[in-house]
């Protein structure tokens, strides 16, 4: 009586995942235990219940239309970035180190503490503040307006920012923050607050070694997660070097802390947090 295998063991048994010893024991037990034999049947029934859910009808027309339009836009953006980027005021940007704060759009604010901390060798890399703005405002709209709203907004954004095309690059800063698991959301919100999108300067060619790794990490992780990281803080987490990646999702922002050594690995994400964008 005391030796009924638990339900999970039975489920493993059904998948032939048990070690040989254990498998023999369970097989033997089932022969003489009607209760466990019934449970095994019920596990099969669970699969059956899941399989019985009716098939999903084809994609509805409105979703298909929306998808077509978004692909169309992406195609146009791509075409625009190939040959018209310089025509419409999106400069092919030089590297802008932090030591040239005049190049950055602070909207009348003082040079944020963040920038000064970051001045030690960090390089700003980005597709331009306008792009960052476009990405953020677009996502804001889509979060508020549901599935139909983004189109309008994106069309406007596209007109205003013809070079808002991929490959995008996140902005990289070094805030000097030592993030902690406990305060991650607050710390991240502070850093995002202190970071004003740069205005129209990016660095296509002369990014430094470290920032290329960070970019690759941000882009590949973003793809994996289906988000777009617009800002990376090259900082510390719980005392160890870490990259903190920001993905604005409308009125909230997703933050991921990754181990610089393990961006590609599934365990590379050390912490994840969401905070309300201020």
């Amino acid at each position: 009586m005391t030796s009924h295998p638990d339900v999970e063991a039975l489920a493993f048994f059904a998948e032939e995942l048990l070690e040989p010893d254990e498998e023999r024991t369970v097989a033997h037990h089932i022969e003489t235990c009607a209760l466990c034999a019934a449970t095994l049947d019920e596990l099969t029934a669970v699969s059956g219940v899941l399989a019985d859910v009716p098939p999903v009808p084809p994609m509805p027309q409105d979703v298909a239309d929306l998808l077509d339009r978004r692909i169309d836009e992406a195609v146009r953006e791509r075409a625009g970035s190939d040959d018209t980027a310089t025509e419409t005021g999106g400069p092919v940007a030089p590297v802008v180190p932090f030591t040239r704060p005049k190049k950055r759009g602070f909207n009348g604010m003082n040079l944020p503490r963040l920038m000064m901390l970051a001045a030690a060798g960090a390089v700003v890399v980005g597709g331009g503040g306008a792009v960052l703005n476009a990405v953020m405002s677009t996502q804001q709209e889509s979060a508020v307006g549901g599935s139909a709203a983004p189109l309008l907004q994106e069309e406007q954004a596209e007109e205003a920012v013809p070079d808002a095309a991929q490959p995008y690059k996140p902005e990289i800063v070094g805030s000097g923050t030592d993030y902690t698991s406990k305060d991650l959301a607050d710390q991240a919100a502070d850093v995002l607050d202190a970071t004003v999108p740069e205005s129209g300067y990016g660095a296509e060619e002369e990014a430094q070694d470290g920032s290329i790794l960070i970019e690759e990490c941000a882009v590949s992780l973003g793809e994996r997660l289906g988000v777009r990281f617009t800002l990376v803080d090259d900082a510390r987490f719980e005392g160890a070097p870490a990259w903190v990646l920001f993905a604005p999702m409308g009125d909230t922002t997703e933050v991921y802390v990754v181990d610089p050594a393990g961006c590609e690995s599934p365990d590379g994400v050390l912490e994840q947090e969401t905070f309300t964008t201020r």
Binding site: D6, V7, E8, L10, A11, F12, A14, E15, L17, A38, T39, D41, E42, L43, A45, V46, S47, G48, V49, L50
Partner: peptide, 28 residues
Amino acid sequence: TGTVKSRCARGRAKLLPSLAHLRNPHPP
């Protein structure tokens, strides 16, 4: 593949109390 199998097995075990009755005339 083993990972998929074990995830499925664990998931089915967890779902059993809430779903088996949809099929089985004698729910646990």
